[in-house]
Amino acid sequence: MTDKKLRIESRLAQIGSIHEPVTGSVNYPIYQATAFRHPRLGQSTGFDYARTKSPTRSVLEQAAAELESGDAGFACSSGMAALQTVFTLFSSGDHLIVSLDLYGGTYRLLERILSRYGITASYVDTNDLDALEASRRPETKAVVIETPTNPLMMVTDISAVCTWGKKHGLLTIVDNTLLSPYFQRPLELGADIVVHSATKYLGGHNDVLAGLIVTKGAKLSEEVGFLHNSIGAVLSPTDSYQLMKGMKTLALRMERHQSNALALASYLREHPQVAEVFYPGLPDHPGHDIQNRQSSGNTGIFSFKVTDARYVEPILRSLELIAFAESLGGVESLMTYPAIQTHADIPAEIREAVGVDDRLLRFSVGIEHPDDLIADLAQALEAARLEVEGGQSR
């Protein structure tokens, strides 16, 4: 049976599995080498120098390309390194249209680094085709989408944006970190490039820093491959192995992440200290129908607003099972305060206009038992209420 006929759960479990007759190893080894012998002048084994191509990294990159239905994969030293590599496709004077509710690190890269080289960006609701058209300029080269967005879970119709982009000769780049190829494959919907912070759901254990790029089309793949090699922000053999190990259980973890997230989001939506919950898995979420149409499941992260900003500090201080920490996508549940953590580099007036204000908390729901997570949230919310009502909020 070929990999093409296998369902995604089987392909994930078999990443790096080899049929090697000498040792019988079922896991691809870590080739901790930077240089490779040439058989003779003008000949190569396919590996020359580890920055260009490494055996362990190559197995990971091939798996990423197959999972996302792409033509080539590129493993980078972080999610931001993956974005930097992709953005190097553009030149001074080029303009990008980018999702309005954007991860703060991507905003920082665009506004504080790429802007130095004359690359500009407009931030719009990418689900609004009229807004996209109004933002398009002669120098516009690409549309960059997060869907769902981080942290407000705004959902973009990928097919509609890709169709619009192709009409105008624009590349469509999709950050697929929050859903992973297990639940969503943007290249199948018309996108040109997919990027991941593989640190998150793909790695899944808060123990490896990595990024992935997957491209569609021979010419684009060759161009990104040239940049990947030239920039050199590539993933090490050890981290490539670690990431593959995490990806083997992606299907199991994503199913638990989404079921836990729905349970926790449903609980918080009814809580008197919670004003609003942002999660595409809830039927009343504005992007619920689009999400169901283009994805086979939901992410394990959502955000919520408390009714009073004074609750935030005592909630974070009172959590016991859930960690107050700045990441997402791991098996352990984490809570983050975007206004001063993940989105601190976005100016306050821009953040607050989108909805990232001082009442917003982001919750990366892990794979613990949902009843234990609910109990921890309940006691933290109650501790905050008693402290604030007692006039002791610090």
Rank of each mutant, 00 (worst) to 15 (best):
P280L: 08
P186F: 01
M153T: 10
A309M: 10
I18E: 09
A380C: 12
G190N: 05
A191L: 02
H343S: 09
L334G: 03
V388G: 10
R351S: 10
Q32G: 03
T120I: 06
G204E: 09
F183K: 01
D371A: 14
P181K: 00
G391A: 06
A72K: 11
S122M: 07
T149H: 06
V161K: 04
A348Y: 12
T172W: 00
F183M: 01
T336P: 00
A233K: 05
P237I: 11
M1I: 14
A198S: 12
A384V: 05
G169D: 02
D48G: 00
I322N: 12
A378Y: 13
G366K: 01
H369Q: 14
L89K: 03
T307F: 00
Y267T: 12
L264G: 04
A198M: 02
N27P: 01
H257D: 08
D284K: 14
W164H: 11
G42T: 05
G246Y: 08
I15H: 05
T238Y: 11
R108W: 07
G93M: 13
D157W: 02
Y267E: 09
P280D: 13
S99D: 02
Y201M: 05
R137H: 13
A344V: 15
L250T: 11
I315L: 08
I145V: 15
K4P: 01
L235E: 01
V356T: 15
P138K: 05
V194W: 00
E368Q: 14
E270D: 13
Y337W: 15
P186C: 02
R359V: 14
E387C: 13
A75G: 13
H95G: 10
Q291N: 13
R185T: 13
G355K: 13
V274D: 11
T336R: 07
L360M: 11
L100Y: 06
D130T: 12
G203K: 06
D101T: 08
P338S: 14
T88N: 15
G79D: 00
S180Q: 00
V208L: 03
A275T: 14
E332W: 04
G232F: 06
Q258H: 04
T140L: 03
P283K: 10
R351K: 15
G217V: 04
S318A: 15
D192N: 12
L6P: 05
D175L: 05
S99C: 08
L102P: 05
L83A: 09
N176D: 04
V365F: 04
A35M: 01
Y311I: 06
L96C: 13
E111D: 07
A375N: 14
T120R: 15
K167C: 04
L250F: 12
L187H: 02
M244I: 05
D192R: 01
L189S: 04
L189W: 00
G300Q: 03
G73H: 08
R359A: 10
N27Q: 11
A339P: 10
Y49A: 02
V86M: 10
N127G: 15
V195L: 14
F324S: 08
S77C: 02
G211S: 09
H168P: 00
H271T: 09
S92V: 06
A348M: 11
L178N: 12
V98M: 08
S364F: 03
A50G: 00
R112S: 07
R116M: 06
S91A: 15
S296V: 13
E223L: 12
T177W: 03
P280N: 13
R394Q: 15
A33K: 07
S99M: 09
K219Q: 15
Y182I: 02
Y241T: 03
I173K: 04
V161R: 04
